[in-house]
């Protein structure tokens, strides 16, 4: 019988020379494996190995989001577990005060493998408090409706944004709906061919209209932003009132459009805060887990 040691982890200390120039390296961030699910199926869907990564350490105190970039994942039989298709590597935002939830999706290990020999890569933390340029505040934004936001800080990050009032947005929505209808009529025959029959095509079109309708349905207190961010630097936008970030009752995003939904009227002196992923606000910590037992 083999004895297995507990999963080991290697911290970021002393690895700074390998990091991207200009990036901040993590000083106290530990990574360990949490819940592991090995879903093995003869079916076509939902098979794979999912591992929750638990983050601990002082660096998390300021973290608003995190992401993981994997470089190696291999089971004890030597099978490479990195997915063939590059996974979504977007930052995961923290929910509440806890550390951001990180999950990695890998290929199934061999049936007979009892452990993952090695998983290594880099965890990146977004800690905007580390760089003043990462937090861009727009004062009294309620009075800046229906025109581009004039901000040199946003410009320097190559981000442009425009606040749209619900009234103007609704007027534009009617035109958008008409355009969508016209577009769908134009492609109706193609959709019929694609969907197989008239009923399926109509159901598909109703679904598209339904989704579009959801985005068009805005409340009087909602904050609507049209954003251009070609470099994908923007992590989030939030409204800050006198007592901190104002809780939304929901939000929607599609392309460059972002809608923050509020039940109550936004105070005139509220600020809009853009969270930008600048190099200095992103902490990078390499990690290596070894001999992770498989369930």
């Amino acid at each position: 019988m083999r004895r297995r040691t507990a999963p080991q982890l290697v911290l970021a200390f002393g690895l700074a020379p390998f990091l991207v120039p200009g990036a901040a390296s993590g000083q106290d961030l530990r990574v360990s494996a949490g819940t592991i699910e090995d879903r093995r199926t003869t079916g076509k869907f939902f098979g794979g190995l999912e591992i929750e990564l638990k983050l601990t350490g002082d660096d998390l105190a300021d973290a608003r989001a995190a992401r993981v970039k994997l470089t190696k994942a291999q089971d004890e039989s030597g099978r490479d577990l990195l997915p063939a298709k590059k996974p979504d590597e977007d930052f995961q935002k923290s929910s509440g005060r806890g550390a951001p939830d990180l999950k990695i999706s890998l290929k199934n290990p061999a049936r007979g493998a009892s452990a993952i020999q090695e998983i290594s890569g880099e965890v990146q933390l977004f800690a905007p408090s580390r760089d003043p340029a990462a937090l861009i505040l727009i004062d009294r934004f309620v009075s800046r409706m229906d025109k581009p936001i004039d901000s040199s800080a946003l410009k320097s990050q190559q981000i442009s944004a425009r606040l749209v009032s619900p009234k103007v947005y609704r007027a534009q929505a009617k035109k958008r709906e008409a355009d969508l209808d016209a577009e769908m009529q134009k492609h109706k025959e193609e959709m019929k061919k694609e969907a197989g029959d008239d009923k399926a095509a109509e159901a598909l079109m109703a679904l598209v209209k339904g989704f579009a309708g959801m985005m068009n349905d805005v409340g009087d207190n909602d904050v609507i932003l049209q954003i251009e961010d070609p470099q994908g630097k923007l992590l989030d936008v939030e409204v800050v009132g006198k007592s901190g970030v104002m809780d939304t009752r929901g939000s929607m995003s599609s392309g460059g459009l972002k809608i923050l939904q509020y039940s109550e009227k936004i105070p005139a002196d509220a600020k809009l805060r853009f969270l930008v992923k600048t190099q200095n606000a992103v902490l990078r910590a390499p990690f290596r887990l070894t001999n992770v037992p498989l369930p």
Partner: peptide
Amino acid sequence: GDVTDRRRNDNTFA
């Protein structure tokens, strides 16, 4: 038919 072996280290829904 299809066989699915859902293995978890916390045994939830396994």
